[in-house]
Design a protein around this nucleic acid. Structure first.
Lengths: 348, 348
DNA sequence: GTTTAGCACTCTATCTCTCTGAGTGCTAAA
DNA sequence: TTTAGCACTCAGAGAGATAGAGTGCTAAAC
């Protein structure tokens, strides 16, 4: 049985009201707040049917209705209208991202912070997935004898560095040369194809320094770990504490379950990855309540979207909020931030 | 009126019991759990006096007593015995910090993580206060035309980098030369004495590249911002979510107040700084309940201590937990972690 | 067939009342 | 100074009672 027009309106109104007040919506209240041209009894019939079809739930017999996960799903899929961000709000976000960012990490940090402030929920920003990106530069900088800073620059604009230890007696020149050799041999190679072996052959094919093999291998191993480490995703998450002010998390147990999960960056990042793959074609990904396979997030909704770096490599930003979230607003906010990121990263 | 021996014992027993159970302690329960050789009536008299002197409080007339801030203070100042860490626990911490850390940031991250795991409370680790440290190296690395990575190395072992934008047409050599000139002119200079002017004079006194003044100034300005940015304290904080399982934070409002404050790294860092100055001579700093001037932390206690880098520059690590904290255990844990850090950073 | 008025019914939240028990403070004796 | 004894206090738990929001159903109206 499909939803007739009035039922759609009723569902939409109930979601809207519940989002606003976090209180079960009754037929009377619905009539009061909206211009239905029918009586409350009619709405009651509609609501009973909507419940039977699984779109609504009752906390108990004599309460109003609240949307089920399926109800929210219908709402975001076909009922809500995503309105454009108000000029004012767009301006606010723009301002927060207006500082010049020449490193992707700072941009993402700012984006996550803006998103958290603007939505009032938990924001998320992840560095680009690097497996598909490639090495553009590798510099080895001697900080003091025996200590070398390996700077790895990736095509996605990601810069990472790692301090490594090498034998004391190597000179800055020798180390820099090895770095150059590796860089020449590997630049342009996708990260996924870089292994200890490729590093070694690259270096040995290009370098001019005469060094015993064992020694050279030691340095190369450190360079390799530095490159591999650059592969790690960074996750920026902000605004967690705001969830505590929501009525759905007034129960500490629930909040704890949520925070426990969120404290594992890796879990969240992995989940975002998975969802992104599932909804590859879509502009944004939404997961509602039980649809989320992360523990402790069954009272939440999760919205993510993908930004692009130079049209190729992509990372994610997103928002985690209560199921009772202002979906259309959050979506437009996320979209706006994504556009801003895309724009800033388009310049080569 | 000073505390006689039995009163001290009573206070100590009450703190111990309350720490263990988070329930007001009555005279009867006290007799049951401890070997006082007197009757409950005698203890009642003692407890009444302790209350009058401000060491104990009553939640209401017919409940047991709980320690007041003053009571906790007396406890940590003269009653508790700081026991040595168990070998087992020492081993666990050692293990967590056993990876080789050649960058101070990673070491602190690991330390904070170990401290949070081990205490079950909120841990804190801050990079060294850098004002007293000095610049040892400054490298400028061209990533692509117009984009330069400025790597700043400070005496405290802190390495920071910042991507900056410069005019497109400058070459790697030119940029590197400017970097060298700045480094030569400034190395050894305390950060506090580095200003845009000192940077400029340093560079102009040492550099050989012929560049129009305006252009040079632009590059120098970027180098200067990079140096100044290296000055920022980094704060690593972990284990916040654990507080939600404590009965004192079962009220979400309270938890929210705490988290609100803790989400401002700067506030916390500033406070730690202040406290450290006040208790300069002490091995560790303790602030209890209302003694803490940060909003939302009046149900908490704050313990910090100072680690050293090469005997000179110093940073802080610490723990935030409920007033009802296992003080002696936490103190020995913090001390142990500090010793580990000191040791790892002693090697030049 | 759809809509509506009317009404009995259900269930939570709230309030009040009572009871219980842990714990106190005080008094008087040891 | 310590102790036994006892009256007193108060939070918390449990039991009704009540109010009110909301429901579902029936029968009439459109």
């Amino acid at each position: 049985m499909a939803l007739d027009n009035r039922k759609k309106e009723v569902l939409q109104a109930i979601v809207d009201d519940y989002v606003a007040n976090c209180e079960p919506v009754g037929s009377k209240a619905l009539i009061d707040r909206h211009d239905f041209m029918v009586s409350s009894a009619t709405l009651r019939n509609d609501m009973a049917e909507l419940e039977q079809m699984g779109y609504l739930e009752k906390p108990h017999t004599s309460a109003g209705r609240i949307p089920s996960d399926k109800g929210y799903r219908e709402y975001v899929d076909s009922l809500m209208k995503v309105d454009k961000l108000s000029d004012e709000e767009g301006k606010e976000i723009k301002e927060k991202l207006s500082v010049s960012f020449d490193e992707i990490a700072s941009l993402l940090k700012a984006a996550s912070s803006a998103l958290a402030d603007q939505t009032g929920y938990i924001s998320l920003a992840m560095t680009p997935k690097l497996t598909s990106s490639y090495l553009t530069q590798l510099k080895m900088l001697m900080i003091e004898p025996g200590k070398v800073l390996v700077v790895v620059v990736l095509s996605a604009g990601v810069v990472k560095n790692r301090m490594v230890r090498i034998p004391d007696f190597l000179t800055q020149d020798q180390v820099a040369q090895i770095g150059n050799a590796v860089e020449q041999g590997l630049s342009g190679l996708p990260l996924s194809e870089i292994s200890l072996i490729t590093v070694a052959t690259a270096a040995k094919g290009n370098q001019k320094v005469e060094l015993p093999d064992a020694l050279l291998n030691q340095v190369l191993y450190e360079a390799y770990t530095a490159i591999k480490q650059a592969d790690n995703l960074d996750v920026y998450m902000q605004g967690k504490h705001r969830m505590l002010s929501l009525p759905e998390f007034s129960d500490t147990k629930r909040a704890q379950g949520l925070f426990d999960t969120l404290s594992h960056d890796g879990l969240v990042a992995g989940y975002v990855d998975e969802v992104t793959k599932q909804d590859e074609k879509k502009e944004y990904m939404i997961r509602i309540g039980q649809e989320i396979t992360l523990e402790g997030l069954d009272e939440c909704s999760f919205i993510t979207t993908t930004y692009n770096v130079g049209g190729k490599v992509a990372g994610n930003i997103g928002v985690i909020g209560p199921k009772r979230m202002e979906y259309s607003k959050v979506i437009s906010q996320i979209n706006f931030v994504r556009m801003m990121i895309d724009e800033k990263l388009k310049q080569p």
